[in-house]
Structures are given as C-alpha cells and as structure tokens.
C-alpha cells in the first residue's frame, strides 16, 4: 500500500464493468463506480438487488464473471491467492447479522485478536492483551467483556465486537453490509455514531450497504442505487435525495416511512 501512494490515483476503489452471474441469474450487471479517499459511499436497493453480491465479489469471496476491481490502482482480480490474502488485510468487512458472524465458542478476546493470527506481522502476540484492551475501549465495551462468549452479549454489543475485530488490522477500506439492520432503532444509533466517530478519527474509506434511506441520508457522501443487479442512479447524497432522476429511486424514496410530513393515513383522509 505504501508504495502505491506515489502513484497518481485519487480513488481508493474503482470498479469497472463488474459482472457476476449465478447460473441464469445476473446478480451484477456491468457495475461501474469509484470511491475516493475518506469517502463514504452508500449502496441502496431492495433485497435481491445485488448489494451483498457486490461486497463479496469485491473481497473475492465470490468469483467475478468479468470486469475489473481496482484497489489503489491494482486489479484485485489479477492477484494471486497469496497476494490477495495480503491485500485483504487492508479491506475489511462487517456483516449484517451480529448473531451469525461471531463464532459462538470463542471469547471476545479470541474473536478480536483472531485477525492477528492470520496476519501475524501486524501485532506480536505479547502485545495482544494491550491491543485488544485498546480496541474494546475504542468501541465502548468494558474490559471485562474480553473473557465473555457472544451468547452473553446483546445485538448491539456483538456488532461492537465485530467492529473491533474489523478495526484490528487498521483497514484502509471498510465494507459494511447492512451493519445495523438487525438491531433496534435505539441501538442502531449507538453503532452508527460509533462507526462514524471512528471513521473521523481513523479516516478509513467505506462502502455502506443499506436499505434504510433515512440512515443513508445522515452519513453518506455519495449514493449508488441498485435494482436487479444494475446501478440505476448514482451521485452525491444531497442530489439523489433532493432530485432523484430514476423512477426506481423515486419509488424507494416515496416508500420510506418518515417522521416528518404527511402519513399514508392522512393522505387517505384528504
């Protein structure tokens, strides 16, 4: 990564004509977008629109059918398995379900330190206790939690553990696949605030996948709207919300329940 900073690239990630087929299904259809340094890009769309497939294909957890994924100028699809493993250190992912994504038989300490087992150069073993303690503090969990198993934690606490683990390798790019949709609204606010505060402190770039437009409006610099594997519209968050050009984007916006303005019930009365 250090060597690449000399190269004149403005984007952390540039995806070109990325396509993914599952048999007959085209889950990603010629996807093109770019994420700049420190930017938060939101990917919105309904279930089945291809959001998770996009995240997994970028991380090469799924094989792309065609296209390019340029991470700081290098095509991830051209890397050998060993090169990809090394690169993965810089690109971390947080999954939707805080109940499924943490191994139930591992303590919080083991879960958070696990990435260092794989990328052993990042933190020597004797530093682990100290580093885990620092990470727990960063995500606002008590130190005593290090010895607990996930079953004892609430959904919000589990997602904090997942965040601590993703941050353990000091990622350059963080991909978040619906990180709060399994959580209560009040806990969502905690986790979002934590993520955004950390983003400001650490400065990672991120791709935030969500179907919650109210949330996207609060945090994203840019938005991509996906429908059936295609990007139907993309642009700065303000512009998309104020002046959506695509019909599907308009439908999504109109369907989102809001706290202000008219409700469906009142419309009917009028």
């Amino acid at each position: 990564m250090a060597a690449d900073t000399k190269v004149a690239v403005t984007s952390v990630l540039k995806v070109e004509k990325l396509t993914k087929h599952f048999g007959q299904v085209t889950a990603l259809n010629a996807i093109d977008f770019e994420v700049a340094e420190g930017e938060i890009l939101a990917v919105v769309g309904e279930s089945g629109s291809g959001k998770s497939t996009l995240a997994r294909t970028i991380l090469r957890l799924l094989d792309a059918s065609s296209g390019r994924i340029l991470y700081r100028g290098k095509d991830l699809l051209g890397l050998t398995a060993a090169e990809m493993r090394a690169t993965r250190r810089h690109i971390q992912m947080i999954f939707q379900d805080p109940y499924a994504s943490l191994h139930p038989r591992r303590t919080v300490f083991e879960l958070v330190s696990e990435p260092w087992r794989v990328h052993s150069s990042v933190a020597p073993r004797r530093e682990w206790p100290q580093r885990v303690a620092a990470l727990l503090e960063q995500v606002g969990l008590p130190q005593a939690y290090a010895s607990l198993y996930p079953a004892r934690l609430s959904g919000g606490e589990r997602q904090r553990v997942a965040i601590a683990r993703a941050l353990a390798l000091r990622p350059d790019l963080l991909i978040l696949d619906e990180p709060v949709s399994a959580l209560d609204v009040s806990i969502q606010a905690q986790v979002i605030k934590l993520l955004m505060t950390l983003q400001q402190e650490i400065g990672f770039t991120s791709i935030f996948i969500s179907h919650d437009l109210a949330l996207v409006r609060l945090i994203a610099d840019k938005v991509i709207v996906m429908n059936r594997g295609r990007i139907v519209e993309q642009g700065p968050t303000q512009a998309i919300f104020a002046n959506p050009r695509d019909d599907y984007t308009r439908l999504l916006l109109a369907s989102s329940p809001e706290l202000v303005g008219e409700t469906a019930t009142k419309e009917q009365e009028a």
Partner: peptide
C-alpha cells in the same frame, strides 16, 4: 427514542443514542 431515530435529525452527529 425520538432522539435516536435517524428520521429526526439532519446529520449523524445529532443522533442521541440511549
């Protein structure tokens, strides 16, 4: 509850988690 709802604020920094 209202303060923690994303629909009630303009920017994430205004969210007030419980």
């Amino acid at each position: 509850l209202l303060g923690s709802n994303p629909g009630s604020v303009k920017h994430w920094s205004e969210l007030k988690p419980i």
